[in-house]
Simulated assay, not measured.
Amino acid sequence: MNLIGLTRSELTTVLSHMGEKPFRARQVWHWIYFRGATDFDQMSTLSKDLRGRLAAEHTLGRPTVSREQTAQDGTRKWLLRFADGKEAEAVHIPEDGRGAVCVSSQVGCTLTCRFCHTGTQMLVRNLDPAEVVGQFMVARDSYGEWPTPTDETRRLSNVVLMGMGEPLFNVDNVAKAVSILSDGEGLALSRRRITLSTSGVVPMIERCGREMGINLAVSLHAATDEVRSEIMPINRKYPLDQLMAALRAYPGVSNARRITLEYVMLKGVNDSDADARALIRLVQGLPCKFNLIPFNPWPGAPYECTPMRQIERFADILANAGLTAPIRMPRGRDILAACGQLKSESERERLQGYRARLATMTAEERAAAEAEHGRAIGTGTL
Rank of each mutant, 00 (worst) to 15 (best):
S254K: 10
G268F: 06
I293H: 00
A246P: 04
I259S: 04
N270M: 12
D275G: 11
V264M: 03
G252L: 04
A276T: 08
Y250C: 01
G268T: 05
A256W: 07
K267G: 13
F290Q: 04
P294M: 04
Q242L: 13
R248H: 13
V264F: 00
A278Q: 15
Q284T: 11
G252N: 06
F290Y: 14
P251G: 10
L261A: 08
P294C: 03
A249H: 06
K237T: 14
V264R: 00
A245C: 01
G285Q: 06
M265F: 01
Y238F: 15
F290D: 02
R248I: 05
R258M: 03
S254A: 14
G285K: 11
T260E: 11
G268V: 05
V283S: 05
C288K: 01
A276D: 10
R258N: 05
Q242F: 12
L261I: 05
Y250Q: 02
V283W: 04
D241L: 10
G268N: 07
K237M: 05
A274M: 06
A256H: 14
N296M: 08
K289L: 14
I259Q: 04
M244G: 10
N235Q: 02
D275E: 15
A246F: 08
L292W: 01
L266E: 06
P287F: 12
E262T: 11
C288S: 15
I293E: 00
Y263D: 00
Y250V: 01
Y250G: 01
Q284F: 11
P294K: 01
Y250E: 00
L247S: 04
R236G: 12
P294I: 04
D273M: 11
I259R: 04
F295Q: 07
L243F: 06
L240T: 02
Q242E: 15
G285W: 10
P297A: 15
I293P: 00
E262L: 09
A245W: 02
R258Y: 05
R257Y: 12
N255H: 14
I259W: 06
N291S: 05
A274F: 02
R236E: 12
S254H: 12
A249L: 07
A249N: 11
A245H: 04
A246G: 08
P251R: 02
A256G: 14
N291H: 07
A249G: 09
F295A: 08
A276M: 06
Q284N: 13
K289N: 13
I280N: 12
G252M: 03
V264T: 14
V264N: 00
N296Q: 09
V269C: 06
E262A: 14
D273A: 15
F295L: 11
R258P: 03
L240V: 01
L286W: 04
E262M: 08
S254F: 09
L286G: 06
Y238E: 08
L261F: 06
K237D: 07
L282K: 03
P239L: 02
K267L: 13
N291E: 02
